[in-house]
Design a protein around this nucleic acid. Structure first.
Length: 855
RNA sequence: GCGGGUGUGGCGGAACCGGUAGACGCGCCAGAUUCAAAAUCUGGUUCAGGCAACUGAGUGGGAGUUCAAGUCUCCCCACCCGCACCA
């Protein structure tokens, strides 16, 4: 075959690799170093999209390259298969979630295989396989036993029509995204994992994550949000002036206590709750606050408001001073103690509150260089550094000194305790849904929540369910739901909540190490393979998935399933795949394939309407700017698609899909194929003599290979591909009359094929078979070695500057010393012209770099 | 508001430690081939001026350090992303 035909060769090689077990790793006792390469597993929506193509191509290049470098590579694939879309499909299309999911998996598996990925498919599993979630249930029971998993009441977004709990992002303008019903705040008993207990470790280990992008680490740090402060008590008087139980507050700024103007408590603080029972106004204020949404915008817009309770607190340092206690809408109930003291001069929220209620604004920190007497807090609170003023015994201290001194006093006199608070809350894992991993707990009136005995695992989902009624079908399935208590054998009920799908994806990477039937992980296998050396996925999982996985690894270590706490040694976040967007004048999105360009304007192919070209945006169905990978693979082949998503842009940046770009990639793939055949036929000419051109070619071979290797090591695929363009360009120009030495030609061809291997594996493999005498597979070949001595030049072209401006070039021998170079340079006609009668101050010679003449 | 990132030709992007700015690709222009087109091949392409050799300007803007700055320092500007009443 001389015509390049991806359709035939791609599926041919995919089958050969599979038959040959090329991508199954060697046994774990091998002497070669291990490399675990993993891309985030996909949700089986039914079709792969370009984001997957990019993600999995990047991973595949790394995996294939590492393998050729002699590493024992694990590169598995699976399915994040539980979750809402399957239930939505069940409701909309009347198809069972299980059937829908497995059908999608089958389709997507084929699509992924058509990309020619070096996956060990033997390890494939879906999180909805009972053989997977059986072990997850066991893990849950372990976590329940060691009290990492627990139940508590919590406020949830409740959709009264769909009878389900909604995630925050499913609440749009206070209404359920599907039903449109007004969402209620409801208290439900939910399962939680104590991730907050691990907060310090999760934070402290971030700097150790050397192979992670800086921004992901910063995002996690912010998310965990540690703050160190002090919790202490205010003595409290009720509206009759009688002493009641003290109010406990948390602050990071005890140094500003002398600026305190009020005390704020949250709407569900015990004092607020008891007040609501007696006071209608208090009650209506609290209700008003509750109605206000919890979305970011609602919070942003909400004015700071409070309700004067009549309670007063005693200032701990100022004898006889009493401050009002307000129920305040901006005090969070689930952070700190749900109560604060307000210092308007040095906290923006307190400042706004004080303005509204005309409370005193006393500055207690004076910025450096300002006169305390002139100091006025006008439009915003001052949160910067300075010296303490207006604060009695704290005066003239620095902020840290004042913090220390006031804290010590609070510890002595006001039950103060040094405390660290985290923004990170415990992880709510209950979902009132059918298509998720059942929680293996039975609720018994006598015994409480009881673990299902291990021998009864897995608790599978019942198949005979319908989705015509709102709510969780598990609740409406009596034979599944009503069981005997494993402990006392009395009537009891199964837990009908299922697990958040983030639980499924928090340990799948450990399961891939070995699909052990007896236990969640195989100790020997995880000890060998983990941590994942290179994890690759989208930035959208920068916080939750990665944080949960880090937490889970540590929890699993405590349970003896692993011996690492950090699961991902290297993390890489690839950019999105974007495409131009088109809209009609009335704002309706239009598919790019329906748009035609005439001169400088765009028109609809069918309706001939004027079309407005919008900014390139992430491919999404709603914007109708998706390109189906299937179509691209059918038209150009997988190698072209792989080439395109790797070329042009660095992998961590967004790429812009363009028809011209793919077209060009397709053309170049064909050119590579022709070049392979050309080199092959040239190399049959038996040239023994080594001429200048041969030598140049040999040097080029080794130079390109050295650069290409460096690029792959640094994940700079766009640069690697740019090198290949040059390499192939040069190789394609070689002619019989050049009389290139056969051995060197063979080397050119061999280097080319091996470099192509990770990027366009089918093309490379086909070329290998056709041109190399060895019967081996290219994907089993070791990476070629370049000769460092060959890369060194004997002569180099150096730029010559005059006063920092390039004026000439000079070719000199590499080892030539400074003074010799100076003499040569001054003889150059271009330089003579300029320097003529001028006095030269000095000549700078940077060996191998540049020459600069200064006058 | 806080935090992070980015800014280089018409476009995507190269440029190691400060040392020839614009590699490579797209697009565009010219030529070869062809009856013609497609495909392919060859060459050109930062901008301005010039027939040309050449000259001047140029990495978001401004200052600075240096023989030399896209790269280092300071101050601005624009855009993107994340978080956001966390006391």
């Amino acid at each position: 075959m001389s015509e390049y035909s991806p359709k035939e060769i791609e599926s041919y090689w995919q089958n050969i690799w599979l038959k040959n077990k090329s991508f199954e790793p060697k046994p774990i006792n091998t002497s070669s170093p291990k490399k675990y390469i993993l891309e985030m597993f996909p949700y089986p929506s039914g079709n792969i999209h370009m984001g997957h193509v990019r993600n999995y191509t990047i991973g595949d290049v790394v995996a294939r390259y590492r393998k050729s470098q002699g590493d024992n590579v694990l590169h598995p694939m699976g399915w994040d298969a539980f979750g809402m879309p399957a239930e939505n499909a069940a409701m909309e299309k009347n198809v069972h979630p299980k059937e829908w999911t497995y059908k999608n998996i089958a389709a997507m598996r084929n699509q992924l295989k058509s990309l020619g990925l070096s996956i060990d498919w033997k390890r494939e599993f879906a999180t909805c396989d009972p053989s997977y979630f059986k072990h997850q249930q066991k893990l849950f029971l372990d976590l329940f036993q060691n009290k990492t998993a627990y139940r508590k009441e919590s406020l949830v977004n409740w959709d009264p029509v769909d009878k389900t709990v909604l995630a925050n992002e499913q609440v749009i303008d206070g209404k359920g995204w599907r039903s449109g019903a007004t969402v209620e705040r409801k208290t439900l008993t939910q399962w939680f994992l104590k991730i907050s207990e691990d907060a310090d470790r999760l934070l402290n280990e971030i700097p150790k994550l050397k192979g992670w992008p800086e921004r992901v680490k910063v995002m996690q740090e912010n998310w965990i949000g540690r703050s160190d402060g002090i919790a202490f008590e205010f003595e409290c008087l009720d509206s009759k002036g009688e002493k009641t139980s003290p109010i406990k507050v948390f602050t990071t700024r005890p140094d500003t206590l002398f600026g305190a103007a009020f005390c704020g408590i949250s709407i569900d603080h015990p004092i607020a709750l008891s007040l609501c029972k007696k006071d209608i106004e208090a009650k209506s204020f609290v209700e008003k606050c509750q109605k206000n949404g919890s979305t970011a915008e609602a919070i942003d817009k909400a004015e700071k408001e409070g309700f004067l309770t009549g309670y007063k607190i005693k200032h701990p340092f100022k004898k006889g001073v009493l401050l009002d206690v307000f129920i305040a809408n901006f005090v969070l109930s689930d952070y700190g103690t749900g109560a604060i003291f307000g210092c308007p001069a040095h906290d923006q929220r307190d400042f706004e509150f004080a303005k509204k209620y005309k409370l005193p604004i006393i500055p207690v920190v004076c910025p450096e260089g300002e006169n305390p007497k002139d100091l006025k807090i006008k439009n915003e609170a001052f949160t910067g550094n300075g010296k303490i003023i207006n604060s009695d015994f704290l005066n003239n201290l620095s902020i840290p000194e004042a913090k220390k001194k006031s804290s010590n006093l609070l510890v002595l006199n006001n039950s103060g305790i040094h405390k660290t608070n985290f923004r990170l809350r415990d992880w709510g894992i209950s979902r009132q849904r059918y298509w998720g991993c059942p929680i293996p707990i039975v609720h018994c009136k006598e015994c409480g929540p009881v673990s299902v005995p291990e021998k009864d695992l897995p608790i599978e989902l019942p198949d005979d369910v319908t989705f015509d009624k709102p709510g969780n079908p598990l609740e409406q399935h009596p034979s599944w739901r009503y069981v005997k208590c494993p402990k006392c054998k009395n009537n009891a009920e199964r837990e009908t909540d299922t697990l958040d799908t983030f639980v499924d994806s928090s340990w799948y990477f450990a399961r891939f190490c070995e699909l052990d039937t007896k236990s969640p992980t195989n100790k020997e296998a995880v000890d060998y393979w983990l941590p994942v050396d290179q994890y690759i996925g989208g930035i959208e999982h920068a916080i939750l998935h990665l944080l949960y996985s880090r937490f889970f690894s540590n929890a699993l270590r405590d349970l003896g399933h692993l011996n690492i706490s950090e699961p991902f040694e290297g993390m890489f976040t690839q950019g999105m795949v974007c495409h131009e967007t088109y809209k009609t004048e009335s704002g309706v999105w239009v598919e790019p394939s329906l748009v035609i360009k005439k001169q400088d304007d765009f028109f609809h192919i069918e309706t001939e309407e004027l079309i407005i070209k919008g900014a390139p945006e992430k491919m999404s169905k709603s914007k109708k700017n998706v390109i189906d990978p299937d179509i691209i693979i059918k038209k150009y082949g997988a190698d072209t698609a792989r080439w395109f998503v790797l070329s042009d842009s660095p992998p961590d940046r967004d790429i812009f899909w363009s028809e011209d770009g793919v077209e060009a990639a397709g053309k170049f793939i064909k050119k590579i194929w022709k070049t392979i055949l050309g080199l092959d036929s040239l190399s049959k000419k038996e040239e023994i003599l080594v001429n200048k051109k041969s030598q140049n070619l040999k040097q080029n071979n080794h130079k390109i290979l050295a650069g290409f290797t460096k690029d792959l090591d640094g994940l700079s695929f766009n640069k690697a591909i740019a090198r290949l363009y040059g390499f192939v360009g040069k190789a394609s120009k070689l002619r019989t009359e050049d009389r290139i030495n056969t051995e060197i030609l063979n080397e050119t061809l061999r280097f080319l094929l091996l470099m192509l291997g990770p990027i366009t594996p089918h093309l490379a493999e086909e070329g290998w078979k056709k041109t190399q005498k060895k019967k081996s597979l290219l994907c089993e070949e070791p990476w070629p070695k370049y000769d460092k001595n060959l890369i060194k030049e004997s002569e180099i072209l150096l730029p010559v500057q005059v006063n920092g401006k390039k004026r000439a070039e000079i070719k000199i021998a590499v080892g030539l010393g400074g003074d010799d170079v100076k003499i040569l340079v001054l003889e150059l006609p271009e330089i003579k012209n300029i320097t003529q009668d001028k006095k030269i101050k000095k000549i700078i010679v940077v060996p191998g770099r540049i020459i600069n003449i200064v006058f």
